[in-house]
Computed example of a mutant assay.
Amino acid sequence: MKILAVLIFVPLQIVWLPLTILGSMIVGYRQLVISSQLGVSQTAVEIINGRWAMDAFGLRKDAAARKLADAIPNNSVFGLWLALFPIWIVSKLFRMPFLYPTIPSPENAKLTNLVPSRTVEFDALISTNAESCAQLVILGAGLDTRAYGPLKQSGLAIYELDEPLTQAHKTASLEQAQIDAGHVQFVEVDFGDRDWSDALLATDFDREKATIFLWEGVTLYLPEDAVKATIASLKNIAPAGSVVLTDLYSQRFVKFAKGKAIGWSLEMTGETMNFGLDFASNPDDTLKRFADGNDVGLGHHQCLGGANKNGPFVAIAEFRL
């Protein structure tokens, strides 16, 4: 079946190639140049486009991601369709994931699968903790759309935290996309300020209720002391039974992302990758040492890309406060 899929895809892609290039250029221009002009994250566009593709290709339902991806001014869904149409045709024709997006086994995950693989791991951790917690706080929420899907009916009190410019960009885009966000409290914070949690505490956030803190795709942009300080702040404002769900990247991944191949695009929007852990050997032990060093418990965790001889490139982990 896969061989037949390739035999159909190759000539189709060759014929479609000029439009694939055009679509990629449109998306790239919007993602990099327009994001830079707006002063917002370009990597956030990469994430929502991955979620858009998962829905469009039938891997994960996310109607809100489809709508929001089309509404943000620093993106082009038209360009995405031009770039991915041959892959979409083949995936639908054979009713199977093909090339992208795909969700391989965690140990066989690649960088090209990062968004889909990471997304489903976090989905599972949120689902596991939703019944025992009363609140969901999304740190560095960016363009995340989980709050506008099934979680809207979960009964969780939901808070999205990010810097003022990002919040303004998102709320305007949610309104443009006609996505109801009335159940979400948007909190403007400066994570560079050690007292950032005061902004959350100024809402109706309840320090006595167990909380899920979702911290996805953020730690690698912070210096190590900021990562540790954030965990300490969360321990200070939440009761036992609360959890931090986060992803921690390998030093190898951070070094690669800071290289010339990718680093120039991050510089356009002032984004710099900093923090990583040594996952080259015994990543479980590394995670345990990190948890112990921050006085939190290590719960369920999953490494992605463990089949690589240099170790996994990221670990998604549950830390118990």
Rank of each mutant, 00 (worst) to 15 (best):
M1G: 13
V10I: 15
P11K: 13
W16E: 13
L19N: 10
I21S: 04
L22Y: 09
Y29T: 13
L32P: 06
S36C: 03
Q42Y: 12
Q42M: 15
D55L: 11
D62C: 08
A65Y: 02
R66V: 14
A69W: 07
P73T: 08
F78R: 14
L80T: 14
W88S: 13
S91R: 10
L93T: 15
F98C: 04
P106Y: 01
E107C: 07
N113H: 09
V115F: 00
D123R: 06
D123F: 10
A124M: 04
L125Y: 02
L139M: 14
G142I: 02
G142H: 06
T145M: 08
A147G: 06
G149P: 08
L156I: 09
A157M: 08
L161H: 07
P164L: 03
Q178K: 15
D180M: 09
G182L: 07
G182D: 15
E188A: 09
V189H: 00
V189R: 01
D195R: 13
W196S: 12
S197V: 03
L201D: 04
A202W: 09
F205L: 12
E208H: 07
E208G: 09
K209P: 04
W215A: 07
Y221I: 04
Y221E: 01
A226Y: 00
V227N: 01
N236S: 10
I237E: 07
A238L: 05
A238W: 02
D247M: 05
V254Q: 01
K260A: 14
I262W: 06
G270S: 09
G276R: 01
L277W: 02
N282M: 08
L287A: 04
N294A: 02
V296Q: 02
C303F: 13
G305Q: 00
F313A: 02
V314G: 07
V314M: 06
A315F: 02
F319M: 02
L321S: 13
